Computed example of a mutant assay.
Amino acid sequence: MAQFSVNAQRFDPYRNFKFRIKWDGRYVAGISKVGGLKRTTEVVKHREGGDPSSSRKTPGRTEYDAVVLERGITHDLEFHNWTNKVWNYGEGLGAETSLKDFRKDLILEMYNEAGQLVVAWKLYRAWVSEYTPPELDANANAVAIEKIKIENEGFERDDQVVEPLEPTLAG
């Protein structure tokens, strides 16, 4: 069933600069960039015996690319603690990982210019495969950015999020 826009006055697409990430039921502070939300389905080619001139195509296995999260480093240890669930240097033999709870479901929320939730994606069974501390440069004048690369086993757009009516300015 087609879903029609509630906000018939909106003509412009949404901007990409208002978003938040949530895991374990709370928002993670300071996320400044999210990259790589991508799904790819393999193409399986085959031919019918009686038609040698062309091939047919069917969908094959679907893969989900890793997602990279970037944020300015703070005293918040969310990135570091999650990374340590997969590998914790210095732990004793056989105790380097915690496979009990190293996967998380994430929610990526996007907001319009008025700060209203307009789109959300759910990422499933995500875990950290890479952690990069900030690059330090004494000659720079920039925010120290840390990154994590998150593997996931799928994502979907949350169809419970509907387009809101945008507020009008009182005049």
Results as ranks from 00 to 15, higher is better:
A95T: 12
E146T: 06
E135K: 15
E96V: 12
L136Y: 10
E91H: 12
E113R: 08
E146F: 10
E96C: 02
L93E: 15
Q116L: 13
Y111Q: 05
L99M: 10
I107Q: 09
G94F: 11
L106S: 01
F102K: 04
A142C: 02
R103K: 14
W121K: 08
Y111L: 06
I107L: 12
R103P: 00
N139H: 07
A138W: 02
I107N: 02
N139E: 13
L108K: 03
I148Y: 06
A120N: 00
L99Y: 13
R103H: 07
K147T: 08
E96L: 11
R125L: 02
E146S: 09
S129E: 13
L99K: 04
I148D: 00
G92T: 13
A142S: 12
E135W: 03
A144Y: 03
L136Q: 08
M110R: 13
L136G: 07
E109Q: 15
P133E: 07
A140T: 07
K122G: 01
E109Y: 10
K104F: 10
L99E: 09
G94H: 10
T97Y: 03
E135H: 12
E113N: 09
E135C: 07
L108V: 07
E135I: 06
R125K: 15
A114K: 09
V118L: 05
E130N: 13
P134Q: 04
V143E: 06
N141G: 10
L99F: 15
L117T: 02
G92S: 13
E146C: 09
N112L: 00
L99D: 12
I107D: 03
T97M: 10
T132R: 14
A114S: 13
E113W: 03
L117M: 07
D105R: 09
R125Y: 02
E135P: 06
L99R: 11
G94T: 08
S98P: 01
A144L: 14
E113M: 06
L136D: 04
E135T: 14
L108F: 15
L93H: 15
L108M: 11
D137A: 05
P134L: 06
A144W: 03
I148M: 04
G94K: 11
P134V: 01
K104D: 05
A120E: 01
I145A: 04
V118F: 06
P134C: 05
N141Q: 13
K100H: 10
P134G: 02
A120W: 01
T132E: 14
E96D: 10
E113F: 03
T97G: 11
S98T: 15
V143I: 11
V119M: 09
E109S: 13
